[in-house]
């Protein structure tokens, strides 16, 4: 009976998806992934209820939704601890420091050749591993998580912003020179605006990195609040619906900050060819 139900859902869904995917325009582009998401949710729900999958293995979407509503205050507290403090502050400090370092390094080709290889090296390392060291240095609270995030986000910004500062051509620089513009005027009015698309690239990349860093660093020790803390303790207590609620929140925060940054980028770099098409 239920197998039949699921098979019907799969067959109907596949037919609907392929019909929708052939449509041009908005409907096909946005409708198809939405329908696919809805189908996955429906299959998940039906399977959980009908096969009586234990709650400690996989809670149904309805149970997760109920957990979200039920534990709104907890979610809000975790959000304040992890996102509003550790992630936001760490992201701002790390990206800001990376940008400043890029401007400073910009004046010396020698230093750049020394630091940049080191930067891409560090970017490839599993930096979240420094979390226990940062806990030792900055304590259990959000400061140590922010420190991890600063280290994680510094180098991507440094590497990207340096590439951005080098993006101006000789023609633009010569024009500024012929206007009698000095180093700072050229930097502020030509080279930094030109570097903005690169900077936003790093900011978007860093927003995901910061969220990962904030959550994973909490696995190593934290006061009794925070998204990573909640995930690790509720997993141990088999409250998987709360864990899924936290994961849902992490997903929403991640994609929302990415989308917000993309909107700001559009507003700030409206002159860039990629937005004028």
């Amino acid at each position: 009976m239920t197998v039949l139900e699921l098979l019907l859902l799969a067959a109907g869904g596949a037919a609907g998806l392929s019909l929708l995917a052939r449509r041009e325009g908005r409907l096909g582009q946005v409708g198809t992934p939405l329908l696919f998401g809805a189908l996955v949710l429906a299959a998940w729900q039906i399977a959980c209820v009908e096969f009586e999958i234990p709650r400690v293995l996989l809670p149904a979407p309805s149970a997760v939704a109920a957990a979200i509503v039920r534990s709104l205050p907890i979610l809000a507290a975790d959000f304040m601890q992890t996102v509003a403090h550790a992630v936001l502050i760490g992201w701002l400090l790390g990206s800001g420091a990376g940008l400043l370092a890029a401007v400073a390094l910009d004046r010396s080709a020698f230093l750049r050749r020394g630091v940049l290889p080191l930067g891409s090296l560090v970017s490839a390392m599993p930096i979240v591993g420094i979390a226990p060291i940062m806990v030792m240095w900055f304590g259990f609270d959000w400061q140590s998580k922010a420190a991890v995030i600063v280290v994680m986000t510094f180098f991507p910004m440094l590497v990207n912003a340096t590439a951005g500062l080098e993006a101006t051509g000789t023609m633009e620089r010569d024009l500024m020179h012929s206007y009698g513009a000095g180093y700072w005027q050229t930097l502020l009015k030509l080279r930094l605006p030109y570097a903005l698309p690169f900077v936003f690239n790093a900011l978007k990349l860093n927003s995901t990195l910061a969220l990962i860093g904030g959550i994973v660093a909490e696995f190593f020790g934290t006061p009794i609040v925070g998204m990573g803390f909640r995930i690790s303790t509720e997993v141990a207590r088999m409250n998987l619906d709360v864990v899924w609620a936290e994961i849902t929140m992490a997903a929403v925060v991640g994609s929302a900050s990415f989308a917000a940054l993309a909107l700001v980028e559009r507003a700030v770099t409206f002159w860039h060819p990629s937005f004028r098409a």
């Binding site: 992934p33 329908l35 995901t208 990962i212 994961i247 992490a250 997903a251 991640g254």
Partner: peptide
């Protein structure tokens, strides 16, 4: 169909802390 159904989710998943 696969392209239209999956690509948006795959791209969106890169903005999500899946490690959680």
């Amino acid at each position: 169909t696969l392209d239209r159904s999956l690509m948006l989710w795959i791209i969106a998943s890169q903005t999500i802390p899946v490690l959680a």
